[in-house]
């Protein structure tokens, strides 16, 4: 399985939260990696203040930063899935550093 981690920072509160979801390697390759590739163009500066910022990592492959205002369609689906996925056993307290390799824990 391929792990996708979603870290949310910013917002009025400035409190960071992290969620993650496991997807099949085929799904990661077909749906989510192409989405992350196109995210680079979506990071223009805006007048918006106190909005959330999402940092999304397809662990072992690629990451992208997406402002809340761009979270629509497939992004929204991905974030909801991560948020609703059952929490992992180890606490996901890691700050937004690259995480361990996929399937690494017991």
């Amino acid at each position: 399985m391929t792990r996708i981690e979603v870290s949310r920072s910013g917002g009025f509160a400035g409190l960071s939260r992290t969620w993650s979801v496991e997807v099949s390697p085929a799904e990661a390759e077909e749906r989510w990696l192409p989405l992350l590739e196109q995210a680079e163009a979506e990071n223009a500066e805006t007048l918006q203040r106190d909005r959330f910022i999402y940092h999304i990592v397809v662990v072992g492959y690629r990451d992208a930063t997406v402002p809340e205002s761009a979270v629509q369609g497939p992004w929204k689906e991905l974030l909801e899935r991560a948020r609703n996925a059952p929490p992992e056993e180890p606490a996901e307290e890691l700050p937004d550093e690259p995480a361990e390799e996929p399937g690494g824990h017991t």
Partner: peptide
């Protein structure tokens, strides 16, 4: 929704 923000307007 856990936030408040200013959207420029």
């Amino acid at each position: 929704y856990d936030n408040a923000f200013w959207d420029g307007f």
